[in-house]
Design a binder for these strands. Structure first.
Length: 757
DNA sequence: TTAGGCTTCG
C-alpha cells in the first residue's frame, strides 16, 4: 500500500529516509532515500485518463517553515500523483493534512511561470513512490480529558442492517420539499448516496416545518442521527426515529464547512469536517445524477442513460426510428429482436453478437426521430432517459426513447475525444476480442464440417469459399464503407487491383511477439552485410565445440567451423555448426539439410551472433531471422537444445533468439459495382492462397501457385466481365492512432480450379 | 401514523 496513515512522523517514518527541504530541491537533486514534508494546501480532483486504473491527482504542499532561510522562498511545490497512488491518496488525505512523499522524481514545473510556485514539481509514480499521511485533527478534542461530546459512529449506506437505528453521513441526490402529511407531521423524502456506492431513500417526519433538514439543493451533504433502517419493496429504506436530528452542509468542494441546523445543541468536530470534506470530494468525482448504466446492469421498467456506439439504424415509420447499439456489455435479460424490412438497415452488426445479448434495439419516437435519422453508424452516443420495456409474457427487453423532453430525454453525439468515448472504446475492443476468441475456438471445431459442406455444395459461381462459421447476410461494399468497426462482414466482389505486383515483394518477416514487420533483405544487401564478418580471423575456441579451420578462395583467409558437441537425439547427423569468418555466399554453399549453420564473430574470446539484419541460422536453402527488438544477448553460450527433435524454433529458443516468421502481405482493391474498397491480405493470406508463407519464400512451385491465383483473379487486360466473383469474409477493425477503419480479408480460400469450370 | 421521489401511445 503506497499510502501510509501515520500518527507520529518522528516514529512512523522509516529512519532510513532523510528529509530534504522543499526550497533546496532542484532538478539535479538526488532524491533516492529522501522525503519532503508539507501541508496539503491544495488538492485537485482525481482525474481519470480513460481506463479505471489510470488516475492523476495534483496537490500542492507547503513546508511549515523554511529550514534554510537563505536557500529560496519556494516553500510550496506542485506534486503529481499517478495511478493507484493517486486514487488512494484522494481517498485518504484532504486539504490540511500533513504529508510526507518519498520515492519521487523531480522535474521542471510546467506551471512555474503561471503559478509562481517552486520551479520544480514532484512526480510520484511506480513501486518506489509512497506517501505518509498525518491526518489533520483537532488536537484539543483528542487531548482534552473532558469527554463532553459523545463519539458517534456512522454506518456506510451499503452496510445498513434491517431494524437498526443508525447514524449516517451522505450526499443528498434528490429531495422533496417538506409538506404536511396526512397524519400529524410534516414529511419530506430524500434520496441519499455515499462512498459505499449504495443509494437509499429516507423519509423524514417532523412536528413542524422548521425542524425539517435544511436542504437547499441536491449535492448538499447531510448528517442524520438516529434513523431507522427498515425493509421496503425489497430494499432498505430509512425513516427518522425517536430523537433523530439532522445537520446539513453545502456540498461544494472548497467552501467553508458550515453546519445548518435548528438544533440548539449539536456535536460538531474535526471528524465531521473530515467527513463532509471527503463526501464533497467523492461526490465531485462521481458522475452526476443520471450517469450512465451499462446494458449489463439494466433492469426492466428502468429509465436510464446509455453510453453506446451506434451500429446500424433503420426507419420503421414516420414516427419511429430503430437504432441498433451496443456498449460492450451483455444485458442480463434477453434482448428483443425487432424485425426490419430487407434493405432498410443502414450499417451492420457483427454476426457473432447474435443471441449474445450484446445489441440493444432502441426505438426512437416523435421529436427524437429527426436527430436519430441524422446519426451515422459508428457514432458514439449518450441516449438519455431511455426506458427499458419488458415484453408482456416474456422477459425480453426492448428500449424506448419516448416522445417529450422531460428528464433531459434525448440523444447526444459524444465528441470523439471525450473520456466517456475512450472508456467505451476500450470496452468495445475488449468485447470484440472476446468474440473473436470465441469464434476462433468455434472455427477450430467446425472447420472440418465447413470444408465438407463447401465441396459438396450446390451450384457454385464463386471462385472462393468462406471458411468461417458466421451466418451473415451479404452486404454491398458501399454498406461496408459506412459500417463501424469492429465487426465481420460478408461480401461478394471482384478484384480490381492489387499491390505489390511483384509477388516476392509481398513477403515480409513478422515477429509474433512485438508484431514488427520487416522487409526480407535481398541477396545483394546480405552479401554486403556479411563482408565485415568475413574479415573476422580472431582465433576463438569455446569449450563446448570442436573447432576446425577450412581454407577459402582468398589466399590466407580461413573459415573457422565450431561444431557443437551437442547431438540431436532423433538424428545423429544433425549438428549445430557455428561459422566464423564466412561470406554470405560461403554460408549458402556450406549450408546443408543436415547441419544447422550459424554465422558468428568473435567477441572478447567468445562467439557472438551477427546482428539481426542477417539470418542467424541457415539450413539448406532456408534462412531464419531473429527479431532485433525481442532477441536476448548475442553471445553464444553452450547451446542447450534439449528437445528430442531439432528445428529452427527449438534452436532459436535455446539461443535466446526470437524467431521471425515469413508472412505474405498484400493490398487488394475490391469492387462490387456499389463501391471500391481497399483491403489488406495479411493474417488470412495462407488460407487465401492455400500456400504457406514459408512455401512462398522457398518453393518455386508455391510461388507459381500464388502467381496463378492472382492471374486467375485479375487476368491481364481483363474486363470486369472476365473477372471471377469472390465470396469474402472481411474483418473491420480500428487501426492506428486515429482509429481509422482497416479491412482485412480473412477466413477466405480461393479455389484454383473453380467448380463452375 | 404520516410516505414510500419522478417521466410513458409505441
Amino acid at each position: 500500500m503506497p499510502i501510509h496513515i501515520i500518527q507520529d512522523p518522528l516514529q512512523d517514518i522509516p529512519k532510513t529516509l532523510q528529509n530534504i527541504p522543499i526550497p533546496t530541491l532542484t532538478e539535479k537533486s538526488d532524491c533516492a532515500g529522501k522525503y519532503v514534508k508539507g501541508k496539503v494546501v491544495f488538492k485537485g480532483p482525481l482525474v481519470s485518463r480513460g481506463d479505471h486504473l489510470n488516475y492523476i491527482l495534483k496537490i500542492v504542499i507547503q513546508e511549515d517553515a523554511p529550514q534554510q532561510s537563505k536557500a529560496s522562498n519556494y516553500t510550496s511545490i506542485n506534486v503529481m500523483l499517478f495511478g493507484g497512488l493517486a486514487k488512494d491518496f484522494s481517498h485518504h488525505a484532504i486539504q490540511g493534512d500533513t504529508v510526507v512523499p518519498s520515492g519521487f522524481t523531480v522535474s521542471p514545473s510546467p506551471t512555474f511561470k503561471k503559478d509562481g510556485q517552486h520551479p520544480c514539481s514532484l512526480h510520484l509514480d511506480g513501486d518506489k513512490a509512497c506517501v505518509y499521511v498525518l491526518q489533520a485533527s483537532a488536537p484539543a478534542e483528542k487531548k482534552s480529558g473532558v469527554n463532553s461530546t459523545p463519539k458517534y459512529t456512522y454506518v456506510p449506506l451499503k452496510e445498513l442492517k434491517l431494524g437498526s437505528v443508525v447514524n449516517v453521513y451522505a450526499v443528498v441526490t434528490f429531495f422533496k420539499v417538506p409538506y404536511p402529511s396526512k397524519g400529524t407531521d410534516y414529511c419530506s423524502t430524500l434520496k441519499l448516496a455515499d462512498q459505499s456506492g449504495a443509494t437509499v431513500v429516507c423519509t423524514v417526519f417532523s412536528k413542524n416545518q422548521d425542524n425539517q433538514p435544511k436542504i437547499f439543493k441536491t449535492g448538499d451533504v447531510i448528517r442524520l442521527h438516529r434513523v431507522k433502517a427498515y425493509p421496503f419493496e425489497g430494499s432498505i429504506a430509512l425513516v427518522t426515529s425517536w430523537g433523530w436530528s439532522a445537520v446539513t452542509f453545502d456540498g461544494t468542494v472548497g467552501t467553508p464547512v458550515v453546519p445548518r441546523t435548528n438544533s440548539k445543541s449539536f456535536h460538531f468536530g474535526e471528524e465531521d469536517r473530515r467527513a463532509v470534506t471527503e463526501l464533497r470530494e467523492w461526490a465531485a468525482n462521481v458522475p452526476p445524477e443520471g450517469s450512465s448504466v451499462p446494458l449489463s446492469a439494466v433492469k426492466p421498467k428502468q429509465f436510464f442513460n446509455l453510453t453506446c456506439q451506434l451500429l446500424a439504424k433503420a426507419t420503421m415509420d414516420s414516427t419511429c426510428t430503430l437504432l441498433k447499439v451496443w456498449d460492450g456489455s451483455r444485458c442480463g435479460y434477453p434482448l428483443l429482436t425487432v424485425p426490419v424490412e430487407e434493405g432498410a438497415l443502414e450499417g451492420g452488426s457483427p454476426a457473432v453478437t447474435e443471441g449474445q445479448n450484446l445489441i440493444a434495439n432502441v426505438l426512437v419516437y416523435d421529436n427524437h426521430v429527426e436527430v436519430a435519422q441524422a446519426l451515422k453508424p459508428g457514432a458514439f452516443l449518450c441516449i438519455n432517459n431511455l426506458h427499458a420495456v419488458a415484453q408482456p409474457g416474456t422477459s425480453e427487453l426492448s428500449f424506448h426513447l419516448h416522445g417529450g423532453a422531460s428528464y433531459s430525454r434525448g440523444i447526444c453525439v459524444l465528441p470523439l475525444h471525450s473520456p466517456e468515448v475512450s472508456k467505451l472504446k476500450s470496452a468495445l475492443q475488449a468485447c470484440a476480442e472476446q468474440m473473436e476468441d470465441d469464434m476462433n475456438t468455434c472455427l477450430g471445431d467446425m472447420s472440418s464440417l465447413t470444408q465438407l459442406h463447401a465441396t459438396n455444395g450446390g451450384p457454385e459461381t464463386s471462385s472462393s469459399v468462406r471458411k468461417c462459421t458466421h451466418s451473415l447476410p451479404q452486404v454491398s461494399l458501399a454498406q461496408v464503407k459506412s459500417s463501424p468497426p469492429p465487426q465481420f462482414v460478408h461480401v461478394r466482389a471482384q478484384l480490381s487491383s492489387y499491390q505489390p505486383r511483384r509477388l516476392y515483394q509481398c513477403l515480409k518477416l513478422f515477429c509474433s511477439q512485438c508484431k514488427a514487420i520487416e522487409d526480407v533483405p535481398d541477396a545483394e544487401s546480405l552479401r554486403e552485410r556479411f563482408e565485415a564478418a568475413a574479415k573476422d580471423s580472431m582465433p576463438c575456441r569455446v569449450p563446448w565445440a570442436v573447432t576446425v579451420a577450412t581454407d577459402t578462395d582468398d589466399a590466407g583467409r580461413k573459415i573457422a567451423l565450431h561444431v557443437s558437441s551437442t547431438e540431436c537425439p532423433a538424428d545423429r547427423h544433425s549438428r549445430l555448426v557455428f561459422v566464423q569468418g564466412a561470406t554470405f555466399q560461403e554460408m549458402c554453399r556450406l549450408s546443408s539439410e543436415h547441419e544447422y549453420m550459424l554465422p558468428v564473430r568473435s567477441s572478447a574470446g567468445e562467439l557472438a551472433l551477427l546482428d539481426s539484419t542477417v539470418p542467424f541460422l541457415f539450413r539448406g536453402k532456408r534462412h531464419f531471422y531473429g527479431c532485433q527488438q525481442c532477441s536476448k544477448g548475442k553471445v553464444v553460450k553452450s547451446p542447450a537444445v534439449t528437445t528430442e527433435v531439432w528445428n529452427e524454433r527449438n534452436i532459436s529458443e535455446a539461443l535466446g533468439v526470437q524467431l521471425m516468421q515469413h508472412v505474405a502481405v498484400m493490398k487488394l482493391q475490391l469492387d462490387d459495382g456499389t463501391a471500391t474498397l481497399d483491403t489488406l491480405l495479411f493474417e488470412g493470406s495462407e488460407d487465401f492462397f492455400g500456400v504457406s508463407a514459408d512455401g512462398m519464400a522457398y518453393s518455386q512451385e508455391a510461388q507459381d501457385s500464388v502467381q496463378q491465383t492472382m492471374d486467375m483473379l485479375l487476368p491481364a487486360d481483363s474486363s470486369t466481365l472476365q473477372r471471377p466473383w469472390l465470396d469474402l469474409c472481411l474483418c473491420l477493425y480500428a487501426a492506428g492512432e486515429n482509429g481509422e477503419t482497416q479491412v482485412q480479408i480473412v477466413n477466405t480460400h480461393i479455389r484454383k480450379h473453380p467448380i463452375a469450370e
